[in-house]
Amino acid sequence: MARRKMIYEGKAKILYEGPEPGTFVQYFKDDATAFNAQKKDVIDGKGVLNNRLSEFFMKGLTNIGIPTHFLKRLNMREQLIRSAEIVPLEVIVRNFAAGTMSNRLGIEEGTPLPRPIVEFSYKDDALGDPLVTEEYIIAFGWASQQDLDDIIALALRVNDFMSGVMYGVGIKLVDFKIEVGRVWDNDFMRLIIADEISPDSCRLWDMETGRKLDKDVFRRDLGNLADAYTEVARRLGVLPSNVTHTPKPTIIN
């Protein structure tokens, strides 16, 4: 088998050249990072879980008419995705105060927000992904006003879907971040959800106990990250319901 050409390696994923023009193969690594990669570890099975969980959410979004880059899962760690021009922003949707919002504003973590709040940060690890305003985004040409309106509408639709899915399995969707890409169909440009949606990119708390089921487990040394992600996958039906711990997950096909 010919060796595939690597296009890009990030903190949690690798992109390879796809089998057809306009496609990539996205490989999910077991690497865990926090604080812009100042804290690092390898969590056995994390990539397998995130591959399947991201597939679950991307398919769910597609089913309700939200376009994504996801085409199909290839194996336990890889997805075939559509190539897209990534808008250089992280789009953050907050339902409850937590993390940097709590630190910036002095609001106790877990405080419900009066409405979902959409924030933008500029994607640049060297700068610490700084929070930016819509004025900055438009002035520097990262996105147009129409793009921003469409991105906010997409993000809020994703929030509605994700909040409902999580509520149904007893999990509170505190916040999450997504990336958005541009694709062209002939001369028509549209925006799609790209990158991944997984516990790496969400804050997820158990509704009864407040137990964290996301990357804060790793950030704050709260226990075993694989256990937390396994619990999310089990509740969503991605893992068999009798699984309580699996560093090398047994996945339902």
Rank of each mutant, 00 (worst) to 15 (best):
V87Y: 07
V87A: 06
V87I: 15
V87G: 01
L89E: 06
L89Q: 06
L89V: 05
E90A: 12
E90R: 06
I92S: 06
V93W: 05
V93G: 05
V93H: 05
V93I: 06
R94N: 02
N95K: 09
A97W: 01
A98P: 15
A98Q: 04
T100A: 04
T100M: 05
M101R: 03
N103G: 03
N103C: 01
L105V: 09
L105S: 13
G106T: 01
G106D: 00
I107Q: 05
T111E: 08
P112L: 10
P112W: 08
P112T: 09
L113Q: 04
R115M: 06
P116S: 04
P116Q: 05
I117G: 08
V118W: 00
F120L: 07
S121A: 14
S121N: 14
K123D: 13
D125R: 03
D125S: 07
D125H: 11
L127D: 13
G128E: 12
D129S: 07
P130H: 09
P130Q: 15
L131F: 00
E134A: 10
E135W: 01
E135H: 07
Y136K: 15
I137N: 03
I138V: 15
F140P: 03
F140M: 14
F140C: 11
W142A: 15
A143R: 08
A143I: 05
A143V: 11
S144V: 09
Q145E: 15
Q146G: 00
Q146V: 03
D147T: 13
L148Y: 08
L148A: 12
L148P: 14
D149Y: 14
D149H: 10
